[in-house]
Nucleic acid binder design. Structure first.
Lengths: 385, 385
DNA sequence: CTGAAAGCGCTTACAG
DNA sequence: CTGAAAGCGCTTACAG
């Protein structure tokens, strides 16, 4: 909109051999302020501020003059002065507390990050990225976040015991979590997929496909995705009058390796397993590799359903049936909710429906009878990411 | 360090049924300012500012008193007031102009992002993430970045024609690029791997392995990684007195699919190719899949060397020989250079050595004679990410 | 509809 | 070594 006054960058100048540029060689070039614009427009600078913010009424003539003056001077408001006066920073933090490796292994995070970046940009809000893995980083993050640098915080990987969340809340920093904020439901807004219903649909599908020894690999039980998807698993078995067997429940940490380890354990204690609901696609990728190494055919011997459908699922071998959670929608809602919180509204939690996506890893019986070709590969390339 | 004064978050309170919280029900709770601290410590607030910034000398007694007062009041400086007074924002933008899909496909970006986040945090600088893919986003980014919100910009995916770079420079925004800033070398600091030497080592290795029809898949030729690695390829062939054949040069766009397409084209025009240097691991992943589909054995028929070693290479099948560029080091240097630029120093460019990493895809002759087992898979799982 | 003025909370020469 | 004061550039009641 506004044009930045250009200054010849001296592109053709010779390479500087000395690194220190003499300060007074450069024209000082002060940025125009609101006063400069007022003078140009022949109004008081309060009026300039008014047309800038568009709150009070300004006469068309004045507004016109101001707009012209802004264009002529290339004025842009100083964000710090504005923040000081308004008490708003105009930026929102995206806080990542998960151990770093997951951030780059699990596509969910990237997708969420991108969605949030877009949604924030649309509201003219700035995205501040904070990675707080180590205790030291977490301390620093708390100081920063409660120091007024940002208007609110988006948390995408909260575990229920995490003191950081509590501290942020105590410091009166608006927080929105992705996934129910276990233990903080009353003070933190959250947006989550309908984990329980999603899990239910996955397991119901396995049952419909004729599986009877259905296991699950859960996420960490101090996350809502962990407990709620486990609940859904149980619900579905109960609804079908199938027995609940604790041997069939193992736990992962959302990572690929965690899923692999859980699958190995499962094959050990329950070799007769014929279906697995895995609480994330990434863990399912690890589980698929283990099944293959163990010579189990998917879905012939063991049918597998994951959770997420974040892009990884469709590329696995075999393509992974999964429960789709609309991550773009989730990031949108997170941004909406944080804006609400910043504006002073009370917390709410939003739940978004999921959708079962059937793929080869859990085809219906008729189709699943087909055999895989070739021997299992010893070193499964799916480990690559 | 400083303690934030806690206020009971009312965790045990009942769920709010009305969403509007009455404003005067909450204690106003103004954050303590520098004046409050001064009063507590019995000094002028200028003195408080001095101990805060540690520039001028302050008597031990005064300093002591101020520190105690800070602890007692839980004071934290208001960042906006500070920014307004100093003219520094304390934040640096990480600008991504590459089409979004690459951001999440190419591990280089994630690694750089994480490294930069860490390095900035260590300097108490804030990382602002900007994704500017669409023209609209780019416009917005320019306004934002030249509007004084950030002290400098880190650019990780610049193409030489990009007007955004020029505009940033014209607006006097300090910029540091990853990779030589083609056409802006005099005004933009940059840090890059020694692309030319790295490429040379890769191709020299292929020659040493007995290959004679060595092709290359380059990056885009409007990026330094594109042209410099191509230069290295040519240098190595010349040094070995091998003919330069333009048929053996194809171009990719850094993406996996781009690498695959280039490899397909290569097999078409030069079916006798026996070695390929691919300018990135991700493109090499695509090329490997195509070779496999075409029934070419790697490295038996065609030896392949990539570039990056960002984590993907080792997990490919076969494991990919590649040129390692130290991305952690690169992100560190970028942050160092942007700090220098912000402090007013002139631009410099830093080049970082690379290292050839030999893996199965380009073993030496004796070893490469081994045969692969089993038929090629039709749907190669490596496409997963 | 518009000006004059206070205030947001710091930093930094400038005198002591 | 330390105070008083100006200044950073806005926003926003408060009077007109």
């Amino acid at each position: 909109m506004t044009t930045i006054p250009g200054v010849a960058p001296g592109a053709g100048a010779p390479v500087p051999t000395r690194r220190i540029t003499p300060p007074d060689q450069v024209v000082p070039r002060k940025r125009p302020t609101i006063r400069d614009v007022a003078r140009e427009a022949g109004v008081s600078y309060a009026t300039v501020s008014r047309v800038l913010n568009g709150r009070d009424w300004v006469s068309p003539d004045a507004a016109q003059a101001v707009r012209a003056a802004i264009a002529r001077t290339g004025y842009t408001a100083n964000p710090h002065a504005r923040s000081l006066a308004t008490g708003r920073s105009g930026s929102i933090a995206f806080l990542l507390t998960e151990p770093q490796h997951l951030l780059f292994e699990d596509p969910n995070f990237s997708i969420l990050l991108r969605g949030v970046a877009e949604a924030l940009a649309q509201r003219e809000l700035t995205l501040v990225l904070m990675i707080a893995g180590t205790p030291d980083e977490r301390r620093r993050a708390l100081t920063y976040l409660s120091g007024g640098h940002v208007d609110g915080v988006l948390v995408v990987s909260s575990h229920s015991g995490d003191p950081l969340l509590e501290q942020l809340v105590s410091a009166d920093v608006p927080v929105v979590a992705c996934g129910r904020a276990l233990g903080h439901e009353q003070v933190i807004s959250s947006v989550a997929a309908d984990d329980c219903a999603g899990a239910r649909s996955a397991v119901a599908h396995l049952i419909a496909a004729g599986r009877r020894r259905i296991a699950t690999i859960t996420g960490p039980l101090d996350t809502s995705g962990g407990v709620d998807r486990l609940d859904g698993y149980r619900d579905a078995l109960r609804a079908a009058d199938l027995p609940l067997d604790d041997l069939l429940i193992t736990h992962g940490d959302w990572s690929r390796d965690g899923g692999a380890a859980a699958m190995r354990a499962l094959l050990d204690v329950a070799p007769d397993v014929d279906g697995v609901f895995v609480a994330s696609d990434l863990m399912a990728a690890g589980a698929l590799a283990v099944l293959r190494d163990a010579g189990r055919e998917v879905p012939g011997d063991v049918a597998v359903v994951g959770f997420d459908d974040s892009g990884l699922a469709a590329t696995l071998d075999p393509p992974l049936a999964t429960v789709r959670q609309p991550l773009e929608r989730i990031s949108d809602e997170m941004v909406r909710l944080i804006s609400e919180r910043v504006a002073g509204r009370a917390p709410v939690s939003v739940t978004i429906p999921t959708q079962l996506v059937v793929r080869a890893s859990a085809d219906l019986p008729a189709i699943s009878a087909r055999r895989r070709t070739g021997p299992p590969e010893p070193d499964h390339p799916n480990r690559a990411t």
